[in-house]
């Protein structure tokens, strides 16, 4: 995609696995990528999708660094054991997903780590896709100190009573009134979770509470249209989505 860097410009990046304090002070691992230099750079908490803390999310974390962010992607499945991202993700899938409270604690820890770094500016956003999109919205409503929320096709922001579980006891849409940052939402009109009707409900609730939001809905795209490693990938919609995403962060985080 189009990028602000010029061909004669120096560019460097460091990316590595680190340890961080998550929910309840637990040590978990995280992947951090940042541009070389003293910054200050805006921060981005990158929430991996339900299939796991996988290669796409490492690349996504580096993509944010490439675009001038200090990006951190916490391993939200750290406590579920170790193995290939797919095997661990399948275990969490069978358990009905990661508990919301634990996820929020881990995201808060990632935000705190970013804020402690001397090369991070005071502006920090949160990005997530799939279940991570839902969790990004949840973080924007439940955590302090986030300046922008990017929710990509967050399924189950709208939940029926039957879908509520002890680990996910409240539908995130119920927290809309507490959203403390502008939100960008990207959705595919052929998605089954969230359906266009659920996105309508999500948008109506944001409007009702006067929250600054920007939703883009794409025809010809379903769930996960950024994922170039899956059949869901839609090149045209994905590239436009990234363009809108970085325009949004230019306004909210720089």
């Amino acid at each position: 995609m189009a990028h602000a860097y010029q061909t004669d410009q120096y560019e460097g990046m460091i990316a590595e696995t680190v340890s961080m304090k998550g929910h309840n002070g637990d040590a978990i691992n995280a992947y951090v990528a940042r541009p070389l230099g003293s910054g200050p750079f805006p921060g981005m908490v990158v929430i991996h999708h339900a299939p796991g803390w996988d290669e796409w999310y490492r690349e996504c974390t580096r993509k944010f660094a490439h675009h001038g962010f200090v990006a951190i992607s916490p391993n939200l499945y750290f406590r579920d054991g170790h193995g290939t991202p797919e095997d661990v993700g399948a275990k969490v899938r069978a358990a009905g997903g990661a508990p919301d409270a634990r996820v929020l604690g881990d995201l808060d820890g990632a935000n705190a780590l970013l804020r402690s770094l001397p090369y991070v500016s005071r502006k920090i956003g949160v990005f997530g896709t799939c279940s991570g999109g839902r969790q990004a919205f949840l973080a924007g409503c439940r955590l302090k100190g986030l300046d922008a929320v990017i929710e990509c096709w967050g399924g189950r922001v709208v939940m029926s009573k039957e879908e509520l579980t002890p680990s996910q006891p409240v539908a995130p849409i119920e927290y809309t009134k507490d959203l403390s940052a502008p939100i960008l939402g990207l959705f595919g009109n052929e998605d089954k979770s969230p359906t266009p009707e659920q996105v309508n409900q999500h948008e109506a609730e944001l409007k009702k509470h006067g929250k600054p939001y920007e939703f883009h809905r794409y025809d010809g795209a379903g769930h996960g249209f950024f994922y170039y490693d899956r059949a869901a990938y839609r090149q045209e919609q994905a590239m436009d989505g990234w363009k809108k995403l970085f325009a949004f962060t230019d306004r909210t985080l720089r």
């Binding site: 339900a50 299939p51 797919e86 993700g89 399948a90 275990k91 899938r93 069978a94 799939c130 998605d191 089954k192 379903g222 769930h223 996960g224 899956r230 059949a231 869901a232």
Partner: peptide
Amino acid sequence: NVSYDHPYDLPLEHALNID
């Protein structure tokens, strides 16, 4: 573990997965 959710490899949005 039986789920109806995102598969890892089958090119569908959702599938019947058995682990």
